[in-house]
């Protein structure tokens, strides 16, 4: 089973962010059809977890529902992360979700980044905000980031939204089918003797 976790930080219902997320997920699923493993898409709507995310920031631990979402992302074979652009960057809710995710959870994970906005003028937020954030998390971000401005939903041909979605999904599918299956970051325990030995001063006496 190949699992693609889709994180959508859209706030309105229905939201164009979720719409973009669904189209990316559908395209990724299509590109993965040729692989032997069946693909499962698991969508996480951050709106429903907004209070839990804020509570996790305050208490330091996730509620059961948030824990399930975090585990889904941490164990997925690939992640599609979509946020509305607020005030020239990702939304605070989107960032907070990845703030409470363990910072090793996405190590080596293929990630497709995408965003929605009212105008195309903020499209580079994907490159200056989302991509560095996922690079910090040591995820492998696919080259094509998908930005959908209001006007894009009307475009039909050429290098339009549909083409960008297809290209990005293809890149994600290619990475997912190449990356070895989970677990990625198993908890490693350093035996105590080793920790103690590492501290012994080089010179004695």
């Amino acid at each position: 089973m190949t699992v693609i976790a889709v994180v959508s930080a859209g706030l309105s219902q229905p939201s164009s962010t979720r719409l973009l997320a669904d189209r990316l997920a559908e395209a990724a699923g299509r590109h993965l059809e040729s692989t032997p493993e069946p693909t499962e898409i698991r969508v996480i709507e951050l709106r429903g977890l907004a209070v839990d995310i804020a509570n996790n920031l305050v208490t330091g631990f996730p509620s059961p529902a948030l824990k399930e979402a975090l585990d889904t992302v941490a164990t997925a074979d690939g992640v599609i992360a979509v946020t509305p652009i607020f005030t020239a960057s990702y939304s605070g809710l989107f960032k907070s979700f990845f703030d409470v995710l363990d910072n090793t959870a996405l190590q080596g994970a293929p990630v497709l980044i995408a965003a929605t906005g009212g105008t195309a003028r903020h499209s580079l937020a994907l490159e200056h905000a989302l991509r560095p954030m996922f690079t910090y998390l040591r995820a492998v971000v696919v080259p094509t980031a998908v930005y959908a401005a209001s006007e894009d939903w009307g475009a039909t041909s050429g290098d339009g939204l549909a083409a960008r979605i297809d290209r990005a999904a293809g890149e994600l599918a290619a990475l997912v089918s190449r990356v070895p299956a989970k677990p990625r970051a198993a908890e490693q325990l350093i035996p105590f003797e080793q920790q103690l030995a590492a501290l012994r001063p080089f010179t004695t006496g």
């Binding site: 804020a54 509570n55 305050v58 208490t59 631990f61 509620s63 059961p64």
Partner: peptide, 16 residues
């Protein structure tokens, strides 16, 4: 301090 202004008393007693 620590957990105040966060989850409800009911959620916190259920989860901790």
């Amino acid at each position: 301090p620590v957990y105040g202004n966060g989850p409800s008393l009911e959620d916190f007693t259920e989860q901790t």
